[in-house]
Amino acid sequence: MKRNLGPAYVAPQALWLTIFFAAPLLIIVAYSFLRKGLYGGVETSFSIQAWADIANPTLLKVTLKTLWVSLAATIIIILLALPCGYSIARSKNQALRLFLVIVPFWTNFLVRIYAWISILGNEGFVNQALRFLGLKAEGFQFLYNQGAVVFVLVYMYLPYAILPLFSTIDKFDFTLLEAARDLGSTRMQSYTKVMLPNIKGGVITAVLFTFIPIFGAYAVPLLIGGKDSYMLGNVIADQLTKTRNWPLASAISMSMTLLTAIAVFLFAFKKPKEQQAVKDIDPLSLPNGKTIGFFHRGPGQGKKKPSGKGVA
């Protein structure tokens, strides 16, 4: 008899996750319950001071602003990525277009942020060009405000939304759009009533892929934003390096992680109502609404070609 080696196969993965994910997370949890060291670090005595400090109005304000900026950037990204993904999926040279989406990734994250500074900065390319053309001698201040932060965040994370949306839309059967038009819907209705429900999985993935990293953004608000553009990531970094309150930094990190986890859970694992209804009526119905991101294959997205010309 063959022994079931299942657990053994998982061992490397489990080891990896323990060392690089679970252990660091536990250390952060532990730090948040320790007393703050005088010059940074922690003292080994239990304290809930850090968690008490979290409840302060300044932090609440930053949290709300972070949420607001992340939501705005995510919504803009999805609105841009949907037509992008659609046009790539319907294009004849998908490979070239996908390549163009991915190319920016070959340049370092920070370098790309600095590239925007050299384009939009006070002495940047755009302002120099305006000055050269004699249009606006004193130049515009494009950067160092909330709008600039959202703009660069959108630029940075757009590909993370385009790729999953492309891959779901590519599997979408475009005949369905024609059928919708044929049955009386306008072009817009055919997208909202037929395409969108069928690419829901891709949209959810795209939202998760963009909202989560933007929620934890640090470099973009630091370099592009002004005094009022501080996000939670910057607060944590400051607590760690300037104020040197490690327990508070840990507590804020943990709250963010929890907040994100809860949001993701509510957003991605929520069962759509009408599917529940079908299940109640028909016990044979499979819950095909496994909606979480990457592996999502909505109903009917595995394209099935009509087969067999057969004999008459």
């Binding site: 369905l176 024609e178 044929d182 049955l183 072009r187 069928n198 109903p299 009917g300 099935k304 009509p306």
Partner: peptide, 30 residues
């Protein structure tokens, strides 16, 4: 005239049923 404005309907080769809707809702769509 766009397809939604013509008084004819099509039965597609691949059926083109909406996978996210039940049979009832597919037929009710128009």
């Amino acid at each position: 005239l766009s397809p939604d404005k013509r008084h004819c309907n099509t039965v597609f080769q691949s059926y083109a049923l909406f996978p996210h809707l039940t049979v009832f809702e597919n037929v009710a769509f128009p």
